[in-house]
Design a protein around this nucleic acid. Sequence first.
DNA 1: TCTGGGGTCCTAGGACCC
DNA 2: TCTGGGGTCCTAGGACCC
Length: 397
Amino acid sequence: MHVDVNNAFLSWTAVEKLKNGEKLDIRTIPAIIGGDEKQRKGVVLAKSPVAKKFGIQTGEPIYFARKKCRNLQVFPSNFSVYYKYSNALYKLLCEYTDKIERFSIDECFMDLTNYLTGKTPYDIAKEINKRVKEQYGFTVNIGIANNKLLAKMASDFEKPDKIHTLYQNEIQEKMWKLPVSDLFMVGKKSLPKLEKMHIKTIGDLAQKEERELIKAFGKYGRIIWEYANGIDNSEVISIEPEPKCIGNSVTLPYDMSNIEELQEVLLSIVEQTTYRLRKHKLYANVVNVQLKNKDFKVYSHQRKMNFATNSTKIIYEEAKKLLKELYKDEPIRLIGIRVDDLLKKEEMQISIFDTKEKEKQEKLDEIIDTIKNKYGYDSITRAGKVNLKEKPDKLNE
DNA sequence: TCTGGGGTCCTAGGACCC
DNA sequence: TCTGGGGTCCTAGGACCC
């Protein structure tokens, strides 16, 4: 089973507003959840069904969305609210199976193979659907199938508040007629290439020779061909996997052409990333710095260090060097930091480069984190760090 | 007033080793 | 008197997902 919250961010915002006594249900008007345009983060994060009728798409600039719909209402995002409802949903779903995977903030896979307790999957889906609506006030789509891929495809059929099945014998009738772009993992870059191979529908893709796809797309070709044929042997993974990388990035409120200024922002995002790294009790071998220039060209530079660490200072020093090597004196729109090749303490090797200094820095961060956890993330910070919120105002004209 | 932020996975090319 | 072959590790870039 795949459970998908309908217009998650917007529905959750609507429910929260109603709970707070507001009369208007923003699901019933042309509305979106969007980033802050003044901060140059103006993209559509979620849309109401009415907004969708105007052709507004998730991910597009709010500026375009407004052109499509003159009286569009835009609401800011609030992730703590989203996590609250996401957790509530997850808790409810856990009553039905232990084999449950949180695929994203608003999606779960559930393996009900040994958890049917005499009911049919459809009955269980109906019950979940009803309970979520009654207890929390938002709706979900549920897809039922014999594997994750088909369940996910099924939950994407008609919305909202619907239950669909997609069993093996229904693949041709329900899935093959869909445009190939509806298939999970087929993005917009692959479409022209598929088009050239005369593949327009999922059925077209399914009926091609597998080796033709592999020839044209490599490993990825095999995957989408299998998906088109309803083949997916992946398990529902109920244990939260360790992250493979952790990163933070910011679109800057104005283009920066000054490396000192960029370094200040870099410190602030390195603090966030290393804080999260330590929360996971992980250590990073690789540091990666990414820039996006004013023309949206993205480029990055990374280096494997001589030892793994989660020290803010050491990672910041490395990141600063990378930035210096990477930066080509041009206006920068976004800066990002990422740590990669993560290890648990037990997996770390004692390196000849390990120093007392590294140990000292890691201990210092432990103390800083204790303070952050007790008094709030912003309660303590490094001198020299700028608060982005106080920075802009400039260049607003 | 145009274009987020957090991830995973794959590929190509180069350095280096025996 | 011309230029192997197999392997690992690393970096950069890109596609895709929500």
